[in-house]
């Protein structure tokens, strides 16, 4: 038990900090935990909101990391997964008045359908052609969402708004509950992904990334493994989309566009491709950076985003987590040397 705790020390500390975060921020702001508990407005509520956005982004990014970083399929249509989740939720609740649970079931069904759609394409095209076909599928959905024919349902280019969220999970009045639900979902997703990657199936996925021909020579039907990865990724991204609709007042059509796929790519790149943890670190850095730049610099924030992107590609190709893992021994040695210097 103790070794289990020791080997996962970082994860446990992070979890603890995240659980205490709303109350800690409240304390700094001068609000008592009781005020935070009844969702009094203040700095704590704002930070919770930011954290929820980061959690949703992280869940979305980790789903992209699974098919891009772990299985090695470059998809340019990943925002389709997220967009379908978000729009299915919105339309089901707003236009059909479904309760939350059936909506969730519908989102899962939609996730299966879109994974099957991608899987139909899978055996025929590889590499860059797969990227183009997925780009095509993604943009068809984006175009459909934007078109005026479906305007009554999707809100066309204005975005889907006026979704009535059940009161017990409403992000305005019950934000603390929403925060902890999101935290739980994120931890759950992470555990499932960690388990998947270390499972035999996940190992084969890594083998497909490294050399698909060889994996096939070893007797694995690579199609099934890719399909499983796609399915899991599609589920997760649709889940992120589901919570996006519940949290955000407006579902903008941008979440179905190419730009949002690039966001996932950027997050995964900042965190570290194929590291899983990287998605969380990347989402944190990306969202805070975006928020900070937009607040203090203004419109030219995406210029700096692009520059950071290029700098990461050129100089930190393995991302924050990847570089940390590569250099952890050196960092530890340097740390020891520092301690020695002060110890003597």
């Amino acid at each position: 038990m103790k070794t289990f705790f020791n080997s996962n020390r970082g994860a446990f500390i992070t979890l603890l900090v995240l659980i205490l975060l709303p109350f800690l921020v409240g304390l700094f702001d001068g609000a008592s935990p009781a005020t935070v508990f009844i969702n009094g407005s203040g700095q704590s509520k704002f930070i919770q909101g930011l954290a929820i956005e980061i959690f949703i982004l992280a869940i979305y990014a980790i789903s992209f990391d699974l098919i891009f970083g772990i299985t090695g399929m470059l998809s340019f249509g990943h925002s389709l997964f997220y967009g379908v989740g978000a729009y299915t939720t919105g339309i089901a609740i707003k236009s059909f008045g479904l309760p939350l649970l059936p909506t969730f079931g519908l989102v899962l069904a939609a996730a299966v359908v879109q994974a099957i759609l991608f899987a139909l394409v899978l055996p025929r095209v590889k590499g860059i052609t797969f990227a183009l076909v997925t780009l095509g599928l993604g943009s068809v959905f984006h175009i459909l969402v934007m078109s005026s024919e479906f305007g009554p349902y999707t809100g066309a280019d204005v975005g889907l708004q006026g979704v009535i969220v059940p009161a017990f999970i409403s992000p305005a009045n019950e934000r603390l509950r929403f925060y902890f639900i999101m935290l739980a979902v994120m931890v759950l997703v992470y555990l499932v992904y960690q388990r998947f990657v270390t499972s035999p199936t996940g190992r084969v996925c890594v083998a497909i990334r490294e050399n698909e021909g060889r994996a096939r020579m070893l007797g694995y039907n690579t199609f099934y493994f890719k399909f499983v990865a796609l399915l899991l990724s599609s589920f997760t991204a649709a889940l992120a989309g589901f919570f996006h609709t519940l949290y955000q007042p407006i579902v903008s059509p941008n979440v179905a566009g190419m730009g949002f796929t690039v966001t996932a790519l950027l997050i995964v790149l900042i965190g570290g491709v194929g590291t899983l943890n990287g998605a969380f670190v990347g989402a944190l850095v990306y969202r805070l950076l975006d928020y900070g730049l937009r607040r203090y610099i203004g419109e030219s924030a995406s210029f700096i985003n692009g520059a950071i992107y290029v700098l990461f590609v050129l100089f930190i190709p393995y991302g924050i987590v990847g570089t940390w893992r590569l250099k952890s021994l050196q960092i530890k040695q340097g740390w020891d040397r520092l301690l020695e210097m002060f110890g003597r």
């Binding site: 995406s302 210029f303 992107y309 590609v313 050129l314 190709p317």
Partner: peptide, 22 residues
């Protein structure tokens, strides 16, 4: 690292658009 070239060009595209806007 071919995949990074692709990401680099994506980043360059974003920078270019922002420069034109500025």
């Amino acid at each position: 690292r071919p995949i990074y070239q692709l990401m680099l060009t994506l980043g360059m595209s974003a920078i270019g658009i922002e420069m034109v806007r500025a």
